[in-house]
């Protein structure tokens, strides 16, 4: 066997092996974050790691291992759909968590939504209670 192609094969194998191990460690990081972080928002931060970066690394490793060109568009489609749909569910979960007060306000450094909620409550004339106004919307 040509030593040059052998070394290229070894390099591709090594790169994909590193990507697979790091991608699996992303899942472990998400699990550790889920177990140790105090409230919903910080857990959501940890949960995105395997969904985006972990999936990217594993799909890249899969494409390297298959050594064919036609799988790359399919892998790209899988990753792009993941990128498009993960923010939708994260937005809905985050909004429901904010509305139902599943957060520790003392842990937030800034709460930009609170000013918007107060302003909307004032405009819509539901009285001073901003929470009731946003819940009814």
């Amino acid at each position: 066997m040509n030593p040059e192609t052998f070394s290229a094969d070894t390099v591709i194998d090594a790169v994909s092996a590193v990507f697979m191990v790091v991608g699996a460690l992303m899942s472990l990081a998400a699990a550790v974050g889920l177990l140790r972080f105090p409230d919903l928002m910080t857990r959501m931060h940890a949960a995105t790691k395997p969904q985006v970066l972990g999936l990217f690394l594993l799909l890249f490793a899969l494409g390297l291992q298959m050594r064919t060109w036609w799988v790359w568009p399919v892998l790209g489609v899988a990753w792009i759909f993941q990128l498009l749909t993960v923010p939708v569910s994260a937005h809905m979960v985050g909004r429901a968590g904010y509305r139902t007060k599943h957060l520790h306000p003392e842990l937030l450094s800034t709460d930009e939504l609170e000013a918007v909620v107060q302003q909307a409550a004032g405009k819509r004339g539901f009285g001073d209670d901003g929470d009731a106004a946003t819940d009814r919307r």
Binding site: G23, M26, L40, R43, M44, A61, V93, H102
Partner: peptide, 22 residues
């Protein structure tokens, strides 16, 4: 809360996808 469970179920789905990839 229920939202924590939903989030953990999402992570579990991502882990299953990672296992399929590997």
């Amino acid at each position: 809360s229920l939202l924590d469970r939903v989030l953990a179920a999402d992570v579990l789905l991502a882990i299953v996808g990672a296992a399929l990839c590997i």
